[in-house]
């Protein structure tokens, strides 16, 4: 399991995507928690990358849980119509990890 705390901007987003996938591949992680509590604002580009990262991780066999999404970010995501339908979410890191354990265990 990998937990990542990041501050996303256009430059780091792609970098983050590559790093994450590389790490998943290296460690063979089965679950990833992405903690977004430090992200105050999000644009469509970052949102798209986020959605992509989740799908890509899925392809690599790692289950993603997003945690700590802020209200403003959630509103932007829904306004943009980014559904993130099959992604688990949790209120904070702790609960995210618990959820991941539960999902992987079950």
């Amino acid at each position: 399991m990998i937990s990542i705390q990041i501050e996303l901007d256009d430059h780091t987003a792609i970098q983050f995507q590559e790093d994450l996938l590389e790490k998943i591949h290296e460690t063979g992680a089965k679950g990833v928690v992405i903690d977004l509590s430090t992200v105050d604002i999000i644009d469509s580009y970052i949102a798209k990358i986020l959605g992509d990262v989740v799908k890509m991780s899925d392809l690599l066999g790692a289950k993603v849980v997003l945690t700590g999404i802020r209200p403003a970010v959630a509103i932007i995501l829904t306004d943009l119509g980014i559904r993130l339908n099959n992604i688990s979410t949790a209120l904070d890191l702790e609960k995210g990890l618990a959820k991941l354990k539960q999902d992987l265990g079950g």
């Binding site: 999404i69 802020r70 209200p71 970010v73 959630a74 829904t78 993130l84 979410t89 995210g96």
Partner: peptide
């Protein structure tokens, strides 16, 4: 939309 957003924040 509201419920979708609520789901995103983890509830």
């Amino acid at each position: 939309q509201a419920s979708e957003a609520v789901r995103l924040v983890g509830s």
